[in-house]
Every structure is written in C-alpha cells, then in structure tokens.
C-alpha cells in the first residue's frame, strides 16, 4: 500500500515555481529520503504534504486522505520534525511535550511514561523543567525529535533532523527510528544533506533539483546508473557541481540562524 501518493504537485510563490509538477509515492513502512541542493524545493514539498501549504495544483494523498479535502484526518496520520525551530522557547521541555500530547489526544496515562522515555532517549530528562530558551541549538533539535515521535504517527516527516546534532545523538535517533520502523511499520520521509546518512538509512531516494524530481530509486540503483562509488558522487553527478543561490527570505534567515548556531 502507498501511504504517500503525490501526483503532479506544483507550488508557486507568485511567479516563482518552487515545486514543479512532482509525482512520487512512498510505500507503507518505507524509509524514504528526499535529497536535493539548497532551495531545491524539499521543505516546500514537505509543507504541501503536511497541510501547511496548499498546492497550487496537483494532489497529495496521505494515508488514504486527500490533504486538502480531509486535512484533520491526514494530520492524525503523521508527525513532523521541521527544519526550522518550532518549539515554544518560553515553556519548559516537559510543557512542550505535554502540549503536543494533549493536541494529539494522547491519554495522560500513556503520555507520561512516553514523555519520560523519549526525553531520556534524547538525553534531556534531567533538563525537563528548564525553559527551552536556555537550551543549546542541539538540545532544541533533540527536543523536537522527541516531540515528533510522541504520538506514534504512521508517517514521520523529518526535514534535516540531524542538522547540528552530535554523532552520538544521530546514532541514537536513527536506531530508535529504525526500531519503530521494523516493529510498527512506521514510514519515514526525511531530507538531509549528509549523503552517507541517506545511503545508510534510506530504502529509496528521490533527488529533487530546482523543483523537479530528477532521479529516484534505491541508493544502489542511483550509484549504478551514474557509475558512482558513493551516493554523494551520484548526487553531484545528477545535480551538477555549482552552488545554488536561490536562498532568499526564510532561507536566508535560517542560514543566519544556522551560522549563529541557533
């Protein structure tokens, strides 16, 4: 069964086409990587998949629900870790988790132990009562990951989840997610700029460049078709070697945030 079904989806911002007529599907239980240079349209695609942006044209069906016609049903089906920060810094780590649990109707008897389990996983349990504004960039990131897993979604969207994380946390996170993936059939849709990460964790990869999907397949298939030794070489072969300069608006802000380690 295809749990994500995207057909001819396009997103325009004024005259600019950020995502151009993309079509792809992801099977239930798959680990799917969405790769592409800066400004390729990965985040925009994820926003269309997660009801934050309405596609200019085309359709997106998630867990059987058209995201435009049945947004609430679709929202029940997924969890997401955004590329940009999305925690409330004026609240504590625990309060952020609890608010999420309540909005997703997780009963208290379930969410209390789960919050502890997840905060221990990301090594924040002893900081659970600290305000998030006092956290380091990596700690905030870890909190977002814990929160995305809290309500046991069917599909988990991870937009550059490991950005700014140390190798220990990265390892922890992936082994936890893979475990969910095997035990509960969790589908994972992630983006990353670390090609080894995609190579290691993805069953299938799609490469998007300038809003268009230029290639898709298993990492092995992509390497084979481009006659490359690594996924990184395959990626460079498919998307060219010049640096993208599309970064504007939110992107520019995010880059500054990144530079300042926020």
């Amino acid at each position: 069964m295809n749990i994500i079904e995207v057909k001819d989806a396009t997103k325009k911002f004024g005259d600019f086409t950020a995502v151009n007529n993309i079509t792809f599907s992801v099977k239930q239980g798959e680990n799917f990587a969405f790769l592409g240079p800066n400004g390729a349209g990965k985040t925009t695609s994820i926003k269309m998949l997660t009801t934050l942006l309405e596609p200019t044209s085309g359709s997106v069906v998630l867990n059987g629900f058209d995201v435009i016609k049945y947004p609430d049903e679709a929202r029940h089906s997924f969890g997401i870790v955004f590329q940009d920060p999305s925690v409330d810094t004026e609240m504590t780590a625990y309060e952020n988790m609890e608010l999420h649990a309540v909005m997703y109707a997780v009963p208290k008897s379930v969410y209390k132990p789960r919050i502890q389990e997840l905060l221990e996983l990301v090594d924040l349990w002893d900081r659970k009562d600290s305000l998030v504004k006092d956290f380091s960039g990596g700690m905030k990131r870890r909190l977002e990951i814990a929160r995305g897993l809290l309500h046991h979604p069917k599909v988990l969207f991870l937009d550059e989840p490991t950005l700014g994380l140390d190798p220990q946390t990265r390892n922890h996170m992936w082994s936890y997610i893979k475990n969910l993936n095997q035990k509960e059939g969790l589908t994972v849709f992630f983006t990353t700029h670390y090609m080894e990460e995609a190579d290691k964790n993805a069953d299938r990869v799609a490469i998007i460049d300038q809003g268009v999907i230029v290639a898709s397949g298993t990492p092995a298939e992509l390497k084979e078709s481009t006659k490359s030794a690594t996924l990184e070489d395959a990626f460079l072969e498919l998307t060219g070697k010049h640096i993208r300069e599309e970064s504007t608006g939110m992107d520019a802000k995010r880059l500054t945030n990144r530079m300042w380690g926020r």
Binding site: T51, L52, R75, F82, D84, S86, M103, R147
Partner: peptide, 17 residues
Amino acid sequence: WDKQFGFLKETLVAPVS
C-alpha cells in the same frame, strides 16, 4: 511572534481544528 519563531507551525499541523 509564533509565526516568526516557528511555534505556530506546530499547532497548525496538529489534528485539531
């Protein structure tokens, strides 16, 4: 504020009206 600091997104993807 929540739009700029991102928290609004967290509420807007939640399955509540």
